[in-house]
Design a protein around this nucleic acid. Sequence first.
RNA 1: GGGCACGUGGCCUAGCAUGGAUAGGGCAACAGCCUCCUAAGCUGUAAAUCAGGGGUCCAAAUCCCCUCGUGCCCGCCA
Length: 542
Amino acid sequence: MLLFDDYKKDILEQIKKLYSISENDMDTNGDYGDFTLKIFKFQDRKEEVYSKIKNAVNKAYIEKIELQGNYINFFIKPEMMLKAIESSIETFGMYPNIFQDTSKALIEHTSSNPTGPIHVGRIRNSIIGDSIYRIIDRFGTRSCTQYFVNDSGKQVISLYLGHVKYHNGEDMTVENLLDGYQQIYSNMEKDQGIKKEIQELDERYEKGDRELISNIQKTASIVLDSIKGSLEKLGIHISTYVWESNFILYGEVAALLNQLSDELKSEGDAKYLEIGDKKIFLTRQDGTSLYFARDLVYHMFKSENFDWVIDVLGEDHKDHAKNLDYVLHNYLDFPSRIDYLFYGFVSLDTGKMSTRKGNIITVNDLYEKTVEESAKIIREKRPEYGEETVDQISRAVASSSIRFNIVKINANKPLTFKWSEALNFEGDSAPFIMYSYARACSVLSRAGNSREINKEYNTYEKNLIKAIYLYPYYLQNSVDFLRADIIAGYMLYLVKAFNEFYLNCPVIGNEEEYKRVRILKSFKRIMEDSSELLGIQLLEKI
RNA sequence: GGGCACGUGGCCUAGCAUGGAUAGGGCAACAGCCUCCUAAGCUGUAAAUCAGGGGUCCAAAUCCCCUCGUGCCCGCCA
């Protein structure tokens, strides 16, 4: 069964016998035809070029060839595309089929410092990371996700100290930990003693004080559990957690420093690497390690088990990643492929988010509000649904909606979070996608046995078939550029084609029923496939 | 000051890698469409100096240069 690229190749081959052209002369993404040949450069008269080509490209899969201005448009028979989709689904259970890669990929995402609840800024990381993981896995590379838990360094020490100083004796909760943490930072200015206390704890920590480390891990794990809970609400499950302290405890940081000892320079007792005119410090004066050193160790660890490592990072980490990459490749023979996926900051209408200053919208708040708003709308639109159904649907809508609103924006772009947009369930949104799926399910549930009468396809049918057919190309692009927003854009395109079809092409009891049911079955399958990639939870009824 | 990113109708966004046909969607606004498979939908109207300027080219939102605006980074923080 021929796929799009094969058609293109085949057509090009025929034309090459007549004219000298390159692949770039042929577009695949035009609105005017399935393939478009640009004939600006051709010497012959347009009409002559057209008639020559039309005769040469005389293939069974061609529906028609048209001359329009300086372009020749080729149209493929919809039946050929539909058959390609159906046969793949029938044979392999999916379209497109995949060849399972033997290599393994690791996507590190979120890795938020466990110093407070996860907020709508950090969640961009998790949503992008989880989607990329699903996409790469679907494409055929076995994949895992990983969270690097920062349970060492001054931030978690501050978290621990905040509890000791301001909430001593109380059971640890996310709330009082966060409060203590914020107090530490607000009091640090006037009270120099706090900095000293933190430094002393850090030294004890690095020397391997078991009791202290275990206390700090306990503190961090309480906050981490709350982060995990928030992620689960959005259907994000992280395969493995790696605790930073382990690399210190088991001496791997020390081993790395030893390995690099010939390259390391000193400033007092602090050690650094010199890259160009930059000094990258790996240890402090007091001998304690810095994040850069621990991250190097962590990356070497990742490469032991994975052929492809992907880090999802905020744009503030760009320099860090650049330096890290340089050291990994120039000093440490990093063996795996590594990609860094950056995303722009999320801000609020009211300004920057800051956990320390308490100016945040937590994911839990966002989720609860979205569930509430969604439930309100469902009760209004579907008064016949019971509360249990309302609850189930509103949770699926909230989770899908939050994810989709964030993932649909190109990661490079900065993003301003707005409640009015977060709670809008129309237009380019997850509910629109979910709704379309439910509509298709509803039609299919009513379909009976019908015979094939007509093999002609109208515009709506053809547009929908083509949208389904193109899925592999969007998937490919999404993987090539590590961009989940490409899948989001694809889904909107697919669903728009479906809704136009739905309004204009009655299915049940129509003489076109057989053919249209075929189209809808494929549509349903691709919807399920692509929704899975973005964590959109489809329901048969919404 | 240096580096990186972003700038597309009132608002949000696609297109930029591979330059070509009227710059594609959505929100908000206005006007329509439910005796017919879910109106969270569909159709139409109005709305764009593609940040600004220069350059390359038969052709620039797309490539090159400059300028402006915004964000991020420039720690012995992470």
